[in-house]
Write a protein that binds this DNA or RNA. Structure first.
Lengths: 173, 173
DNA sequence: CGGACCATGTAAGTCGTTACATGATTGC
DNA sequence: GCAATCATGTAACGACTTACATGGTCCG
């Protein structure tokens, strides 16, 4: 899986601009996949050249012009091929856990600080996902499934952090 | 954080070869950080050139020679600098969740298959981490903290998968 | 005798990030 | 007036991955 497949997935649902795609990602898959504009725009150009998508320029009032991309049959085929291809392993790279792993080489204050930062993130995440859940009650069952995963895993993270923070406090006594 | 910092962390604990480092990673941080030989060996060369580590060639019987790397004071300083630097966000890229998100464009059989593959992985992971836990009871409290995270998150994943699999089965009735 | 383990390394290619560049509108 | 939102794009750079290349030992 790469950014191209994810973009094709979104364009299968409806035509979008690069900007739209970025926004959609933030509101849906951001907690298990993210991409920058510097990745999205070149990918769209490449995909147009390869015939997976087609560009349509849309004039807008009070806003800049928009390049709306529509998926082609070739693009749909490519996306469905991806959906049948072998599953790739999940990639995780956690700076927080690496630092905790080597925690004896820093202060407890630092570790507490990092855990609290992560706690805040998880709380924001949780709130954001709960809002999404209420705002789009008509999501299909698969999107609900990933949304639920996001909510549950944020709650799991929060519990783990709370537990570890209390252990650190006990260590001080 | 990059591979260099992780290597410096391991070499702070004891001198190691590239091969040793790779093995250590598999047995400790693999579920939140991984690196291939093609990343480790060039990193060691670079770090030696920059004076963070020093090479010592060790003759072995019945085994190839080993390049044992020892951390220098400069290397220790660099590692401690990293430990004080701003925390980087966690990177996650899950092909499984992307495919579930776009699940309506594939078969339930595929989704079930992928979930079962992930389930098997989580079970293997759990067994592996439990073995590590028993094998090294004298780990410092920070390493235990990350190990516990690994065990708990594998259990969380298992529960989520079981739940989703049963939902998929219900949908068939 | 074949596969797993030990051990190191390079080269080509992929894929992405960050920063820069531009510029209009809307709301505080 | 300044920040945020809308909107697109490039260029330089970084950081890997995969595949190739080599070769010995140990075990069944």
């Amino acid at each position: 899986m790469n950014i191209q497949h994810v973009i094709l997935g979104f364009l299968t649902e409806r035509p979008m601009s690069g900007y739209d795609i970025k926004q959609m990602m933030e509101n849906s898959v951001a907690y298990f996949f993210d991409a920058s504009f510097g990745a999205i725009y070149p990918a769209l150009k490449r995909m147009e050249k390869e015939g997976y998508i087609e560009k349509e320029v849309v004039q807008q009032e009070g806003k800049p012009n928009k390049n709306l991309y529509v998926i082609t049959n070739r693009g749909k085929e490519e996306f469905l091929n991806y959906m049948e291809s072998p599953l790739n392993p999940t990639l995780i790279r956690s700076d927080l856990l690496i630092r905790i792993f080597f925690g004896r080489y820093t202060s407890k204050e630092n570790i507490t600080k990092w855990l609290k930062m992560e706690e805040q993130k998880a709380m924001d995440q949780l709130e954001h996902l709960n809002q999404i859940k209420e705002k789009y009650p008509d999501m299909d069952s698969f999107k609900k499934m990933t949304l639920l995963y996001g909510i549950d895993s944020a709650q799991f993270t929060l519990k783990w952090i709370e537990n570890e923070l209390s252990k650190l406090r006990k260590g001080d006594e």
